[in-house]
């Protein structure tokens, strides 16, 4: 059954609405003038030159990318371990553990921001890179756990059993059978965590300091004072990064993973 005309019209409008602000930002970044305007009056790469020549922007970019890469690796390892450990656990243990792993998703970000801050202040780690890194690892863990758990449900268990019957040790089964079979879930977990960490701003804005900031928080700070084409240029770089990750994710895993994760989470709820 095809969808009716009104539904298709509404869907088309929403499909225009969703990317609209991003297209505006990309367009405005090529404006030659100092005032933000769309459509741009001409074409220039002036603001990109300005961004790349500014030490502060480059450092913020490097910090964000470094934290995101580190957080992605650490959360994926932790999530893989947890998913393997819970696979044969009793349904009750597993459901309790999964509820706890997914608990950070139930906390409003504004509350999490101040919660992490109070902890980092006590440890004298507020405004440091390590403080932001640890907070991002905690924040990203549920996002890494879900794709791996979905992958684990989907693979054929008999292969791992065959390895065990043929005398492989548990570690050998994990490293030579399970991990290769879980590759799509692991790739999704890595990329998902990277994107979440790289783009995170609501919690992170509580944790940065005068000496250290991430790229999205620096953009926020800039916007609170003035919205100029420099921000449009740096935002376009960010959009391009995220877009690249999504295309990679689509290639490696397929975007259907987002829907699968949702189904799986609801199915177990």
């Amino acid at each position: 059954m095809r969808t009716s005309l009104p539904v298709r019209i509404l869907a088309a409008l929403v499909l225009v609405f969703l990317p609209a602000p991003l297209i505006i930002v990309i367009g405005a970044s090529f404006s030659p003038g100092a005032v933000l305007s769309f459509p741009p009056p001409g074409f220039s790469l002036r603001w990109y030159g300005e961004v790349l020549g500014d030490h502060g922007w480059v450092m913020a970019f490097v910090a964000s990318a470094g934290i995101a890469a580190g957080a992605a690796v650490v959360t994926t390892i932790a999530a893989l371990g947890a998913a393997l450990a819970l696979e044969h656990a009793s349904p009750r243990t597993r459901s309790i553990a999964e509820t706890m792993i997914l608990a950070p998703l139930l906390f409003p970000h504004a509350a999490l921001g101040i919660a992490f801050l109070s902890w980092l202040v006590a440890l004298h780690a507020n405004g440091t890179m390590i403080g932001v890194f640890v907070s991002h690892v905690i924040l990203c863990a549920p996002f890494a756990y879900r794709p791996i758990a979905v992958s684990l449900h989907q693979i054929d268990r008999s292969v791992a059993e065959a390895a065990e019957i043929l005398g492989a040790s548990p570690w050998r089964t994990i490293t030579t059978v399970l991990i290769p079979m879980l590759r799509p879930g692991l790739a999704a977990a890595l990329m998902f965590s990277f994107i979440i960490s790289f783009d995170e701003v609501t919690v992170t804005m509580f944790l940065v300091g005068p000496e250290f900031s991430t790229l999205p928080v620096k953009i926020y700070g800039h916007l609170a004072d003035s919205a100029d084409p420099v921000v449009a240029a740096i935002s376009t770089i960010l959009i391009a990064m995220t877009g690249g990750m999504i295309l990679l994710l689509d290639r490696v895993v397929g975007l259907g993973i987002f829907v699968d994760i949702e189904e799986d989470a609801r199915g177990n709820a």
Binding site: L18, P19, A20, L22, V25, D199, V201, I219, L238
Partner: peptide, 29 residues
């Protein structure tokens, strides 16, 4: 899958960037 890219790309771009887009769209100019 094609349409899903249009839904997921804006979703994963930083909130601060998307909000900035609305500032540009809704401003007096």
């Amino acid at each position: 899958n094609l349409w899903l890219i249009l839904v997921i790309s804006p979703w994963l771009v930083s909130i601060v960037v998307r909000t900035f887009g609305w500032m540009v769209l809704l401003g007096s100019r």
